[in-house]
Simulated scan of single mutants.
Amino acid sequence: MTVRPAALVVAPGRGSYGKDELGSLARAGVDLSAYDAIRAAAGKPSLTDLDGADRFSPGVHLAGENAAPLIYAASMADLAAIDRDRIDVVAVTGNSMGWYTALAAAGAVSVEQGFRVADAMGVNSGRHGPGGQLVLGLGDEDWRPVPGLRDVVLALADQTGMAISIDLGGTLVLAGGEDAVKAFAAASPVPTTRLAGHGPFHTALMADSSAAAMAQLPADGFGNPAVPLIDGTGRVWQRWASPAEALWRYTFEAQILTTYDFARAVQVAVREFAPDQIILLGPGDGLGGAIAQALIGIGWLGIASKADFAARQKAAPFLISMARPDQRKLVTR
């Protein structure tokens, strides 16, 4: 009897469907009819038309109401392409908006309900007070933490009214009101980049988004995951032992209003389930560096630097990015 390698599946978040991904759903022959019907009923442009556009338009394709469903459809298509006869998916997690994909990937919601959640939250994510996000690095060129830098950054964030939106380990995404964003950027000890079109996600300023989600998306659409699910606090939602209402409440309260600690989610997942590989769903593979830095943060498999990670990937890839054809073939039929 052949033992299947155990895999942790990771779903990417907002920003992963970019110019290079335009047309990728059509090229892969993804059946979008069910998703298009849901969009049509709500008077929204179809994913077929969005993906099939002549050119990539940041104002259209990066807008939350279109980006979220495009990303969800691409990620779920990749999930379906994994050869389960060869791969044993033992746990699932995601980054930020990727949590909605992870819910469906783990079986806590149906595929269509997961799309409804992602589609609705693409709109609801625009309901917030004024503000935005800044991204900055905490590591050196070899992805190792710069001693003391995190403490300095967090002290400044506290002084200026910013909060950690997403913790990617070697990279932080901070969020806050407009004045806080400007004050932090002006005084930051390291370069910052403002994420265009992004609100103060994963902070209390998203209260209107949370309220809208809870009113629009009832708990009866949720159930127990069939595969363990790791959330943005590092909590493991075990299969057949996770109250549906609690999972629903986390999704539309804490997940929206508090820090999404993606690095911790990855670290908990590898420690708890010891996967033989991590499979990063598409679209894109921009999350690969963050996953590597999360592994470096705990020295997983002896990986202590970017060089260590690169050497491991060359010898026998631990991180499989489905957006890379040479790696994709390792886990698909």
Rank of each mutant, 00 (worst) to 15 (best):
G122D: 13
G59D: 06
A212T: 05
G161E: 14
R127V: 05
G132T: 11
A28L: 10
D326W: 06
G64F: 07
I279F: 06
G131D: 12
P12R: 13
A63L: 05
G176F: 10
V111P: 00
L217S: 07
V123R: 14
V9C: 10
A73L: 01
L138C: 12
G18A: 08
V60H: 02
D276P: 06
A241W: 04
V190A: 10
L287N: 09
P12Q: 12
F115R: 02
A290V: 06
A213K: 02
G288H: 03
F252N: 04
D140G: 15
Y260M: 07
G122V: 14
G199N: 02
P317L: 05
L168T: 00
A226G: 11
E141V: 13
R84D: 02
R239D: 13
E65H: 12
A175L: 13
S188K: 13
A274V: 11
L229I: 06
A219K: 06
L25W: 00
I166R: 01
D158K: 13
A215N: 11
I296C: 09
G23D: 13
A290R: 08
I71H: 11
I298Y: 01
M206C: 07
A120Y: 12
Y72L: 01
L301Y: 09
P130R: 10
M97T: 14
L295C: 05
R264Q: 15
S24V: 15
R144G: 04
L295E: 03
